[in-house]
């Protein structure tokens, strides 16, 4: 598998990689097996061979709030990403192209790094007074505090890589600068837009902290629901495993599709590879 010159190194490297793969995969395999274990075997750590049962899946699908949680998570993430793209794309373009915004890049980075601890208190109090606790609007606003800066930062990196002559050409071809932006530059960074959208979606979909404190039974998102299974201890393990799988499978598929673009986005034009 490896091209190291001596045998010892090749063997050691192979063992190390297999060990790493095992450590990464094991929890996934385990959680999948838990989800199809017959409920009565749920708490037994030593049983690996059993007849698969879809009881957990059925219960989650038809007798729990998880479908509502999925809908909430999806709605919140989708709206958050949509707003982030609408506000972030033009701003990222301006930061990338026009003079006088070098400080703004660091402002965006600072916003991205802002600890939720300092924002959650005012958010909670404000939404409480507006009677918007347990509303999806509140969570969307909260998620925008990290998705919007991340998406903007992502796109700056992609816009930086589009040659400036492209919009010069479009302007000479008879378009205004803003037309050049949406007719020529936006299509040219389509992969970047997709990557930023997926990444922002994943961030919102995965959030527990804000959702835990700002949602109630109506607007509860999937991560909060997953955390909720804990209180019922071992007997709910199977259903929790199902909920975990539902939360992670779409995200794994989505993020796999943007792996290539992820680095450029995270670097945001600050790291030149």
């Amino acid at each position: 598998m490896f091209d190291y010159p001596n045998l010892g190194a090749r063997v050691a490297a192979t063992i190390a990689i297999i060990l790493a793969l095992f450590l990464v995969l094991f929890p996934f395999v385990w959680v999948f097996l838990e989800s199809i274990k017959p409920p009565e075997l749920g708490a037994r750590p030593d049983v690996w061979v059993f007849t698969p049962s879809w009881a957990n899946w059925q219960e989650v699908a038809f007798e729990s709030d998880v479908p509502l949680n999925i809908a909430n998570s999806f709605f919140v993430a989708a709206v958050t990403v949509l707003i982030s793209l609408l506000c972030g794309a033009p701003a990222a373009y301006a930061f990338s192209r026009f003079r006088g915004f070098s400080g703004a890049r660091y402002g965006i980075l600072g916003a991205e790094m802002m600890p939720p601890a300092i924002l959650i208190l005012p958010f909670f109090l404000l939404l409480y007074h507006l009677q918007l606790i347990d509303s999806r609007i509140g969570v969307i606003a909260a998620h925008l505090t990290f998705v919007l800066p991340v998406v903007t930062w992502f796109l700056i990196g992609f816009f930086d890589e589009v040659p400036k002559d492209l919009e010069s050409q479009a302007m000479i071809d008879g378009f205004t600068r803003f037309q050049a932006f949406y007719l020529v530059i936006l299509p040219a960074v389509r992969p970047g837009l997709a990557a930023a959208a997926v990444f922002g979606f994943v961030l919102s979909w995965n959030d527990l902290f804000y959702a835990l404190l700002l949602t109630g039974s109506e607007s509860r998102t999937l991560p909060v629901a997953i955390a909720g299974f804990w209180t019922f201890r071992g007997i709910e393990m199977g259903k929790m495993a199902v909920a975990i799988l539902i939360a992670i499978i779409p995200v794994l598929i989505l993020s796999h599709s943007i792996q290539k673009h992820l680095i450029r986005g995270i670097g945001g034009g600050a790291v030149k590879y």
């Binding site: 506000c87 033009p90 701003a91 301006a94 930061f95 005012p122 958010f123 909260a142 505090t145 919007l148």
Partner: peptide, 19 residues
Amino acid sequence: MIVPLVLVLSAIMLYPLAF
């Protein structure tokens, strides 16, 4: 082009930070 971003970030970040 930065107006939407500035407005949204002011509402959801600057204001809460000041708060």
